[in-house]
Design a protein around this nucleic acid. Structure first.
Lengths: 164, 164
DNA sequence: CTGCAAGTTGAAGTCGGCTTCAGGTCAAGC
DNA sequence: GCTTGACCTGAAGCCGACTTCAACTTGCAG
């Protein structure tokens, strides 16, 4: 028994339940994150499991993954049922590590910043804050930061730290 | 005395010393972050203090500020000399707070993630990770994270990698 | 004086994650 | 059967922080 008609959601219903805009859902579909059946009239109808996939994607984003990375991670989980504890915990542990790394780097930044209060130098060659020689600082065009700002504020992509 | 000719840097020299591309320096100028004198032939010549301004901007970016915010912060520091300890510490304290907030949110996220390992639910309505009711989660389209990704050479950030 | 690297400009392109728009179609209540 | 609102599509726009491009000018070594 596949999903009955009652289990299928229109894009509007899915949008309401997931908190995402219909346009975002269509975008997710283009990105290969979710999929939908179609009615005879070509309208999307989503299975309930789609809600779980969306939950996963949103969680992945919170951890700092791009949609592309989320898609990769998603491919490792079952499509039509809730992941087992083992399956989910494998993912969660990885995410945990990511978060720890991010926190670590922020701690480092904080320490350097504190040092800079003392030195007041702000020179390119000497300032520890500027020269923080960690991966984040040296990271190429792919490097991004996960930054939280006040909701009232505008969007805020991280520094591009591009080296060329 | 003002800067002598020897103290003035071409855009290429400034780029080499700051690690930024010339195009980025021109962009910073358009954004009002730095400025330059011009030669008779209209080429930019930068005072050495510009290096300090750039250092400040890059540091600001690391803390998660946009260039616009960096400009605002920059306006509070002296243009032609190193900031005093008091001046710098006022700025640094603010940045410190930002970092602390970011760390706090990551810690929260981590706790929720840990909880999710136990529950394995990943349901939109119940998953604490998805529903993390803090500002970051609730923030609309403007919400962004400051995410550190591995540079090209680094270890794979692949989710769910070999942790199972 | 010549030759060429390095500089100049404005305009357009890039990336990610969407939103918005225009113009047309579908589903369902009355 | 008609109306209305939800849905469809592809294309374009948006944000920030840049880069890239084309076409042209400067500055300096030889």
């Amino acid at each position: 028994m596949g999903p009955t008609r009652h289990d299928l959601l229109t894009i509007g219903q899915l949008a309401a339940r997931s908190g995402l805009a219909p346009s975002a859902l269509r975008y997710y579909e283009r990105m290969g994150l979710i999929s939908a059946e179609r009615t005879a009239g070509n309208q999307r109808r989503y299975a309930r499991a789609t809600l779980r996939r969306i939950a996963f994607v949103r969680a992945a984003q919170r951890v700092g993954l791009s949609l592309e990375e989320a898609r990769t991670a998603l491919d490792r989980l079952p499509e039509d049922r809730a992941p087992s504890t083992a399956e989910w915990s494998a993912v969660a542990v990885t995410w945990h590590e990511r978060i720890d790394r991010q926190i670590e780097e922020l701690e480092l930044l904080k320490r350097k910043l504190t040092g800079c209060i003392g030195c007041g130098c702000l020179s390119l060659s000497r300032c520890a804050l500027y020269n923080a020689g960690d991966r984040a600082a040296a990271a190429g065009p792919g490097a991004r930061y996960l930054l939280t700002r006040d909701p009232a504020g505008g969007p805020e992509p991280g520094p591009a730290e591009g080296t060329g």
